[in-house]
């Protein structure tokens, strides 16, 4: 997929299993929207094939459209249309739409049903966009940055709805640049950057292994030479970094052996741990390790 001489998405091999929530995660400009819009039939790929529910999004567009739900990034409604009026209108284009009052209620839109679209808050516009995407009871919904700019409550409401959709048999494909969103919500995550897939798997597969940190804080100052003796006990594949005279950081595989060794060492030194924090590797670290850049730049 190219715009001019800039390649937005290149050789992206991406499979979505039915009945799952799949997140396409990546920084701004990674090619997430382009990927989604190619699946929705808005863009024609210059190379490669795209199939959604076995259909070609361009050639079989008319057969495909009733079966998918689309939430665009930004607007997509008449500025003068009232929120419920807009939702009811989209509902009327479908054969078996959901009850729009129920849907609005679920998404916390009942208070602003009579408000013209242009006067809805950003979060309300987002939720209305999501409602419009699911009202036709689609088999697959594509949601582009569903919670961008939402307050925490609206975010949780949106996550709950997407999870319920999946549980009821809808396939959800979402793009996001929030790693916590992908980690909490998705069954499968595809991390893309510069239009290419850089990692793919379940949240667990992606965050398993690799480096983790243990932050140890004790009740009274360590004896002299403490970091060195812990380093000796743990061996060379683990790094011990002193932070202060009552705390230190252990970086390495946070497995049973490491933890047991740290605990035994505390006993030998006669210090009592006040807190022992395990920092699990998260998607942010995965992205950082692969690209050398922060995800949310």
């Amino acid at each position: 997929m190219r715009y001019g001489d800039k390649t937005a998405v290149d050789a992206l091999d991406l499979r979505v299993e039915r009945n799952t929530i799949t997140a396409v995660l990546g920084p701004n400009g990674a090619g997430k929207t382009t990927t989604l819009e190619t699946c929705e039939g808005y863009r024609r790929p210059q190379a490669g094939t795209v199939r959604v529910l076995g259909l070609d999004p361009i050639k079989d567009r008319r057969d495909l459209l009733p079966r998918i739900g689309v939430m665009l990034q930004g607007s997509g409604a008449w500025s003068g249309a009232r929120a419920m009026e807009m939702l009811n209108h989209i509902a009327k284009l479908h054969a078996h739409p959901l009850d729009t009052a129920m849907l609005a209620d679920r998404l916390g839109l009942h208070d602003c049903g009579k408000t013209p679209y242009r006067r809805l808050s950003g979060g309300q516009q987002q939720r209305l966009g999501l409602a419009m995407a699911v009202v036709g009871r689609p088999e697959v919904v594509f949601v582009d940055e569903p919670t961008a700019g939402m307050d925490p409550l609206a975010r949780r409401t949106t996550w709950e709805l997407l999870t319920e959709l999946r549980d009821d048999g809808v396939t959800v494909v979402l793009t996001t640049h929030y790693m916590d969103e992908a980690e909490r919500l998705a069954d499968h995550i595809h991390i893309i950057d510069h239009g290419q897939m850089i990692a793919s798997g379940t949240p667990l597969e992606l965050t398993r292994g690799g480096t983790a940190t243990i932050r140890l804080v004790v009740t009274k100052p360590f004896p002299d030479g403490a970091p060195a003796s812990l380093q000796a006990a743990l061996g060379p594949q683990v790094e011990v970094t002193p932070i202060s005279d009552v705390s230190l950081l252990v970086t390495g595989p946070a497995d049973h052996t490491t933890l047991a060794t740290v605990a035994r060492w505390c006993e030998e030194q006669g210090v009592l741990p006040e807190s022992l924090n395990l920092g699990q590797r998260n998607l942010e670290d995965v992205f950082l390790e692969i690209t050398g850049r922060e995800l949310e730049a």
Partner: peptide, 22 residues
């Protein structure tokens, strides 16, 4: 469930009528 897929288009005439009224 509430959201169990049941996709389909409304009859074309009804869609056009809805669009006109809107």
């Amino acid at each position: 469930g509430t959201f169990t897929p049941m996709p389909g288009s409304a009859p074309l005439l009804r869609q056009v009528a809805a669009q006109s009224v809107m």
